[in-house]
Each structure stands twice: as C-alpha cells, then as structure tokens.
C-alpha cells in the first residue's frame, strides 16, 4: 500500500505554491503573520485573507530523531527515517524530513520538495556559514 496523501485544501495549496528556490508559506495579508501548518484562518487576527509568500527559510533545529518504525510500507523500506523539528526565523515551527542530518542547535535551511503520491515534504538543507546568522 502506498503512502496516502490525505491533504486539506490549504495543505494542497502549500504543495501548489512550492518553489525550488524558496520556501513559500502562508501569510496573512492583514497582519502579516506567517503560519504553519497551513489553515483557513489567521492564527493571530482571525482574518481569512491569506496568501502564499516566500519567507526567510533559515532556522534552528530544535530536536531530531531517527524513526525505526512506520505504519506505512513505503516508509518501512526507508528506515531509519530522519525526523526533526525546526524553529524557523520567520516565526513558525515545522516538522521536517531532516535530509541534512542537522543536530539540535544546528542552523539549517528548510525547503519544500515534491515527494511520492503528491506529497510535498519540507526538508532540511545545509546552510552556508556566512548566511547562517539571523
């Protein structure tokens, strides 16, 4: 069985807005709050005027772990799978596929990359030393 892509409308919109050269996340037109996971209402001012904007995609790894167990056969073949939480400088926390193997405290970039079955995954990428500081 394949990994299902049961996405909400905002979740699909994130995949459609994805660009290779930038991290595009949801932003409120009204108060400019960046938010993640994508939603239909602004978490700060409750406006529904949301759009998709490139954001500062630098961040700091909060914690990482290697998954040794998965509910999906697709992923079972890829174990151990590197999961991490990253605090982005633009203010949101993201769970990511930690492809850059960043350790807690490491500076990384986060990008959106196409994955199987229509999923778009946020992934870590290495960051140049001179661009690492916020």
């Amino acid at each position: 069985m394949n990994t299902p892509a049961r996405h909400s409308d905002p979740g699909r919109a994130l995949a459609q807005a994805a660009r290779a050269d930038a991290l595009v996340l949801q932003q409120c037109r009204h108060c400019h709050t960046v938010q993640y996971p994508p939603r239909e209402i602004c978490v700060n001012c409750l406006s529904d005027e949301l759009h998709w904007k490139p954001v500062d995609n630098r961040g700091t790894v909060l914690a990482g772990s290697d998954l040794h167990h998965s509910l999906e056969p697709d992923y079972r073949q890829q174990l151990p799978w590197k999961l991490a939480a990253v605090q982005l400088d633009c203010g949101v926390r993201v769970l990511v596929h930690n492809r850059a193997a960043g350790a807690a405290g490491d500076r990384v970039r986060v990008l959106a990359q196409p994955h199987r079955q229509g999923n778009t995954l946020l992934v870590t990428a290495a960051i140049d030393e001179q661009e690492a500081s916020p």
Binding site: T3, P4, A5, R6, H7, S8, P10, G11, L14, Y36, P37, P38, R39, L62, A63, G64, S65, L67, H69, S70, L71, E72, D74, Y75, W81, L83, A84, A85, V94, L95, V96, H97, A104, H115, N119, L121
Partner: peptide, 30 residues
C-alpha cells in the same frame, strides 16, 4: 492516526507515518 486531525494529515503523517511516536520522540529528546 492517518486521519487524526487536519494539521496532522497535512504536516505530521507524511513525515514518516510514525503516528504519535514521531512528535513524542522529539519531545522526549528535547
């Protein structure tokens, strides 16, 4: 697990499909 919440379906389950073990492994590590 796969249908636990909208946020989870969009932003957790696709990340290795580990169920609650995923987020709790990060909380425990931190």
């Amino acid at each position: 697990v796969a249908n636990f919440s909208t946020f989870s379906s969009d932003a957790v389950y696709p990340y290795g499909a580990a169920g609650p073990n995923g987020p709790f492994s990060l909380i425990t590590q931190k």
